[in-house]
């Protein structure tokens, strides 16, 4: 089990959205991604965020979610949107090492934090991260749409608990839905990744 990031609670997210003037519904947040005009006196939109170890400058309206910024501004389409409303975990990224739903975090709220996506896991020479390697060996994915989220949840879990029991892994991964039902294969992958280290 890994800790919850106190800075990224659902309450903070909703407060942020309301403060930004957007209604707290999934469709509004989703379509806000492409940017409203900045009214005079509104908050700065050109921000810098640390993604996969690189500081990126990006134009982000205050109501934009991290998943939208990653996918549609930075081209990091490995982060998926399954529901865009905090139900499935397909959008899971690490924020300061903690698995977090990218669809339910405002990009402005993570300006000072380290964001890691599935694209940032491979080593410089292209070797897969142990979790990715284990997921291939166990053939954990089926359709693969939930896989980047499962990978990031597993990476976060193993950083907090490098040698989980299968039951701990099951609890730790529980925020990620797999409609294909590949849970058993993902758990095999997590356990193998813990072995590979």
């Amino acid at each position: 089990m890994y800790p919850v990031n106190p800075k990224l609670t659902r309450r903070r997210f909703i407060k942020g959205v309301i403060a930004s003037g957007a209604a707290a519904t999934s469709t509004s947040i989703w379509y806000a991604a492409n940017g409203a005009e900045r009214p005079p006196g509104a908050v700065e939109r050109l921000i810098r965020i640390n993604v996969n170890g690189q500081v990126r400058s990006v134009d982000v309206p205050p109501q934009e979610t991290l998943a939208s910024t990653l996918r549609y501004k930075l081209g990091l389409t490995g982060t998926k949107l399954g529901c865009n409303r905090g139900e499935c975990g397909a959008c899971t990224v690490l924020v300061d090492d903690i698995p977090s739903y990218g669809c339910s975090i405002l990009t402005h709220s993570v300006k000072a934090m380290r964001i890691e996506t599935v694209e940032g896991l491979e080593s410089a020479n292209g070797d897969l991260h142990p979790v990715q390697q284990a997921f291939v060996e166990e053939l954990s994915p089926q359709c693969g749409y939930c896989t980047p989220g499962q990978v990031m949840a597993a990476v976060g879990l193993l950083r907090a608990n490098p040698n989980p029991t299968r039951e701990e892994a099951r609890q730790g991964m529980a925020g990620n839905i797999c409609r294909c039902g590949s849970y058993d294969s993902y758990l095999n992958g997590v356990m193998r990744a813990a072995e590979i280290g």
């Binding site: 990091l76 389409t77 490995g78 982060t79 998926k80 996506t117 599935v118 694209e119 896991l121 491979e122 897969l128 979790v131 990715q132 997921f135 291939v136 053939l139 954990s140 994915p141 693969g144 749409y145 896989t147 980047p148 990978v151």
Partner: peptide, 12 residues
């Protein structure tokens, strides 16, 4: 396609 699924490179 398995490596593309775990790296997020495969495109939907």
């Amino acid at each position: 396609d398995a490596p593309g699924k775990v790296t997020g490179r495969i495109k939907y």
